[in-house]
């Protein structure tokens, strides 16, 4: 059971400072708009926190572009809205000197081939719930998430720590005959996407597996793999079961 509440709270409260600026080529007003500064939760998704950003820049772009879907870019690359913000930051930013995170806002030329349209917040929510169900398939053969009711699902989607954990604790429970999940839901990100594999939290002989074991199974023969999650480098001897219970994102995956 996820019972180290201080850690859960700490992870939950992780925030990042971001400076949004509108692409200068899209500004049709004489005066350039000010940057828009925001502290955003690491665990959230960009479409959920950027309403204000959109509002701020809207009047600076051409009338016929104001209804278009806003998209974000960092360092020449469109930002994948369906990754949690903290995951994106850990992938794209290598040093804290780069804070605040400078992100360019666009209304024009949506890069259809590179990122998906989210159209509305329901899309983000259904994506989130699909990840959560997948995680539950790995942990409990999907039995817990499928027995949940709509109101439980809604509660997992709210942004309050207590309400989230009141429901999420069920997803983090282990059955009475087993003291661990069936498999650990995780995604290992590399330059060209992410990898997933079936990895058990305990070895054949009952020994608790650690992050080191996960890396050996994911990248056999490579000893120089660096791992980062929530902006920190977890010790390699961290038990996988504990990591899954405490350091998973709200979608129940370790990223």
């Amino acid at each position: 059971m996820a019972n180290d509440r201080e850690v859960l709270r700490e992870v939950w409260e992780g925030k990042l400072p971001i400076a949004f600026k509108l692409d200068p080529d899209e500004v049709v007003e004489l005066q350039q708009p000010d940057h828009f500064y925001l502290m955003v939760p690491r665990l959230s998704y960009f479409p959920l926190v950027t309403d204000k950003v959109r509002k701020h820049f809207l009047r600076y772009v051409a009338n016929d572009k104001q209804d278009r879907e806003m998209w974000l870019e960092y360092d020449g690359q469109p930002i994948k809205w369906h990754y949690p913000i903290g995951v994106l930051f850990d992938l794209l930013i290598t040093s804290d000197d780069q804070l605040p995170w400078n992100i360019t806002v666009h209304f024009d030329k949506f890069p259809e081939n590179q990122i998906y349209r989210f159209s509305n917040k329901e899309t983000v929510e259904s994506y989130f719930m699909a990840c959560l169900k997948e995680a539950d398939v790995l942990k409990h053969r999907g039995q817990i998430a499928s027995n949940m009711q709509k109101k439980d699902h809604n509660q997992l989607w709210l942004d309050k720590f207590e309400q989230f954990w009141a429901v999420n604790r069920k997803l983090m429970e282990v059955s009475s005959e087993q003291e661990h999940f069936k498999y650990i839901p995780f995604r290992c990100y590399m330059e060209d996407g992410y990898r997933q594999k079936l990895i058990k939290p305990v070895a054949e002989d009952g020994r608790r597996k650690t992050l080191q074991d996960l890396l050996h199974e994911m990248f056999p023969g490579r000893n120089n793999v660096n791992i980062k999650t929530h902006g920190m480098i977890p010790p390699l001897e961290t038990p996988l079961q504990w990591m899954s219970e405490h350091l998973s994102y709200p979608d129940n995956f370790l990223h």
């Binding site: 369906h82 398939v137 499928s146 594999k197």
Partner: peptide, 21 residues
Amino acid sequence: YVNQTFAPSPDQIMKNLYDCY
């Protein structure tokens, strides 16, 4: 849908799904 349970992410690759499900 995978396992008649969840809809995999559009960017999820076949190898990951195969390895897990």
